[in-house]
Simulated assay, not measured.
Amino acid sequence: MDRFRGHIAGVGTASGTRLVVGRWDESPFGAFTDVMMEDVGGVRTLLAPSEDIAAYVGSTYSFDEVQVVPVRATLSASHLTVEAGGLRLSADLGAPTPLGRLLGLVPRALATSPRWLALISPAAALLLPGVRTAGSAGNGRREYYGVTSARSITAASAELHGASLGTLAPLRPAVRFGFSSAPAAPQIVSVVTTISRTG
């Protein structure tokens, strides 16, 4: 199994462009950040920092365009910044969400267990429409999202090639990169993503 430990941030903008940022502290590729972007017309773009990462992520999710570009990110207790090619994102982080506080009560070993995540996926879909905790990763593989905490994103500014994407907005409609979307309410989660090579 491949494990990715880090954070996923989901941000909507007033322009209709939606951003999903993966900032990974540990992974088969070491530490890295990638960005999945879907514009108002439904065009899905991956911004990845290397050819190897682009190939792996591109075989796991669906994109209309893949760009290998320098990607840099900083994450503090109060702020997330991302620079990826022509994309610039700055987000303010708020308090834990109500669900995030509940997630903090679940033992980490259970919260990140693929068996547990497969079991609770239907309930997650009812609680957060569009969100799943287990599903297909393509090419006969399975993927599991084990979220251990969640914090709100209270404000954000983003621009693409110098043009503003507008103010912070819900992540609607749901993004279509894989079997699960990020929640509609902008937030950042601590997560262990597990991808089973054997299906």
Rank of each mutant, 00 (worst) to 15 (best):
L93T: 09
S78G: 00
L93S: 08
V57S: 04
S78Y: 06
V57H: 01
V71M: 01
D52V: 11
P96Y: 04
L93Y: 08
E65S: 12
Q67M: 11
F32C: 09
S78Q: 07
I53Q: 06
A48P: 08
S59L: 03
G42N: 05
L80S: 11
V66W: 02
R88D: 07
L47M: 10
A77K: 03
H79D: 02
A95R: 07
S62W: 05
F32V: 12
V35K: 06
G85R: 08
V40D: 05
T74E: 14
D52M: 11
S50F: 04
L87Q: 12
T81M: 09
T45S: 13
A54T: 13
P70K: 06
E38N: 07
V66P: 02
A95E: 14
S76R: 00
T81Y: 04
G86R: 13
V35P: 00
V66I: 15
A77Q: 07
A95S: 09
G42T: 12
E51P: 01
M36L: 13
P70F: 07
M37E: 10
A48N: 10
A31G: 11
D39V: 02
A31V: 09
T33W: 05
G58H: 08
V69A: 02
S62G: 12
V82T: 03
A73H: 01
T97K: 09
V68T: 15
L89S: 07
D39Q: 11
R44A: 15
L89D: 00
L46W: 04
